[in-house]
Amino acid sequence: MLEFTILVPAVINGLLTGSIYALIALGLTLIYGVLHIINFAHGALLMLSLFGVYFLHSLAGIDPYVALLILVPAMFALGYGLQRTVIAHASHGKDENVLLVTLGIALIIENLALFFWRSDTRTIDVPYAFDVIDVGFAFLSVPRVAAFGAAFVVAGLLWVLMTRSDLGRAIRAVAKERHGARVVGIDVDHIFAMSYGIGTACVAAAACLLLPTFYVTPQVGNAFVLIAFTVVVLGGMGSFTGALVGGLLIGVVESLGGLFLGETLGQIGIFLVFIAVLLFRPTGLFGDRA
């Protein structure tokens, strides 16, 4: 009943979607690793970035891929500023307060977006939106393949940053040993803000890669962030490899779930895999053993 010609494209499509999940989850896992909180504002920041791509295109005629050069630094700056001015001050150094503050930020951003931009679904029109390449056994959407490649480039850049630069080493140091970091002269507040900024920049990159084949509404972040949370826990909280592999895995599972169970039930597969992984490896696929 199931043929190769249906299964293979489904898996490939899952990988393509999964790369975007991975990118969003990378930002989330980075922030979790350093600040030890789940960033509830992640979805709202993704939505904000998507609106950024939308308006840059519709008002200024800027292509989404060119918008990467504007939105990634802009969202990094916003993330840095949010952590430094709002989150750090409101948290008084308590992790659980940070959690509530990010939830508050999410509510404010989402409702402001609803107020100003209404709940209409918006899309952009790019000439290459429906371009496909024929790879013999499947037709692949060009913008989605581009997103897949770009997601890996971003993940690679992030890996280089984390392992080869003093900033990356400092971020990893702060993640596990804040006092030790202060002692060697690392400005811990700055590193917190850099991590939040980089996490937000990942979301901005995801938004630029996503919008050519997707839409934006003020609630669009929720769907992605729920999956990104799943990916982060599945892959191992704070693990970069985990976020990447987990994102791809969830993409494939969702795609195959849609194929076998129908579109409406497709997401059940995600949570079945999630529960199965946590039963056998409670710290996630690549998580540190507790």
């Binding site: 003093d166 990893r172 002692v183 060697v184 690392i186």
Partner: peptide, 29 residues
């Protein structure tokens, strides 16, 4: 003015080499 803290407070997740490199994060780079 640099301290070697009580309880060592080294970075357990980083290599020995990376720990030492971070020693000169602020000064002596």
């Amino acid at each position: 003015l640099v301290q070697v803290p009580e309880g060592r407070r080294i970075f357990p997740n980083l290599t020995v080499h990376e720990n030492l490199e971070l020693g000169s994060y602020r000064r002596g780079r």
